[in-house]
Simulated assay, not measured.
Amino acid sequence: MSTTATIDAMRTAAHTLRSGDTRDSLRAVQALQDALDATKAHLLCKLEESRDYELDGASSVTNWARRELRLEPAQTRTAVRCAKTMRELPEVEEAAAAGSVRMEHLNLFAYGVKHIGHEMIRESAGWLLRVARTCEPSKLRAVMKELRQAVYPDSLDEAWIRGMDREDLKISPVPDGWHINGFLNQATGAKLKAALDALSKPSSIEDVRTPPQRRVDALDELLTSVLDNGLPSDKGIRPHLLVNVDVETLHNALTNQPNEGGKPAELVGFGPIGSQLLNYLGCIGDITPILTSGKDLPQAKILNVGRDHRLATPRQRKAITARQKGRCAAPGCTNTHLEIHHTTWWGNGGKTDIDELAGYCSRCHHLIHRGLLDVTPAHQQDTLLVA
């Protein structure tokens, strides 16, 4: 790679900075920075091939650059890849040395050589460079993708299939809230984006929310609507947020009194929550008093149906869900979709009473009926023992 064009860019930048024109100075500085990035990439590639990094006790060029230049390994690898691409494409190398294209553009040319083919990119280098010289990297990225789709039309369906294979969505509680991580296929991602875009538009000219705030508010609005109207009930119970809280803690939260020594409320699936959040949820939600156990209490007669009904009533399902904090009764199982099981089997004379019912996920429930797990009622709670 010739350094003449880079040196010329340095002279131009120095001269322009003395002229006092801010716009020209910015253009010259950007061109110089891009030229120097290309030169640095060339020198890193040269260092890798000569293995001179070993003279300073480094095991690789990435280790040397991290120690001597404070570069992340990914930056060094990208620079070396771009330098090798410039060698294969002389026109691109010349433009890079002059500061006409940025490192991000060079990385996209490297993508094209790998995923479209050297010959096609070499033949198209002229008009691709025109795009790179006049547009930001995102435009060149879109052009590269269109070119790849034209050369390999089947790649669109292949990408869709690969996306389905990568599908994943994890929602994990962390101290400050929830961490969402995952990957959606093209169709599912497009549906989510379309819904969030429609709901996250500024409500008026006075809407001062940031775009991230509007997106989060849109997701909250979407989920609230679905929970209120869109999800089918499961044997009389519709999915909703559940908060388990005793009467005293709830009263203190709703009346803004300190909850001294009281047990904190628990948001099912997340964990303990503070009084201010409890106050907010109590303001927007329904409050349902639930008896979770108590065979000998008069109130239990409202929940207990004995042998009159085999299936648990909606009230019993709510009570069991609250008692188990929404989780499967099997020790160590954290699944949340519960099926109600008679601890003394109905066929053996069991009753549909609150203290003789427990909630298990489908998998654990199947294991019970296969005889692989044995359920033994113990002190108004169900203990699951391995048979």
Score class of each variant (00 low, 15 high):
C135Y: 07
C135A: 03
C135I: 00
C135T: 08
C135R: 13
E136F: 09
P137A: 04
S138D: 04
K139E: 01
K139L: 03
K139P: 01
V143S: 13
K145L: 13
L147P: 01
R148I: 02
A150D: 11
Y152I: 05
P153N: 12
S155C: 05
L156V: 09
L156Q: 11
E158H: 08
A159K: 09
W160T: 11
I161T: 12
R162M: 14
R162I: 05
D165T: 10
D168V: 12
L169V: 00
L169H: 00
K170G: 03
V174A: 04
G177M: 08
G177Y: 10
W178G: 03
W178I: 14
H179V: 10
I180Y: 12
I180R: 06
G182S: 15
L184F: 11
N185M: 02
Q186C: 07
Q186V: 02
Q186L: 05
A187T: 03
A187R: 08
T188S: 12
T188E: 01
A190F: 10
K191G: 08
K193V: 07
A194Q: 09
A195D: 08
L196E: 00
D197F: 04
D197V: 14
D197T: 04
L199V: 00
K201A: 15
P202Y: 02
P202W: 01
S204Y: 00
I205T: 14
I205N: 06
D207Q: 09
R209H: 12
T210I: 15
T210D: 05
P211G: 08
P211W: 04
P212M: 10
R214I: 15
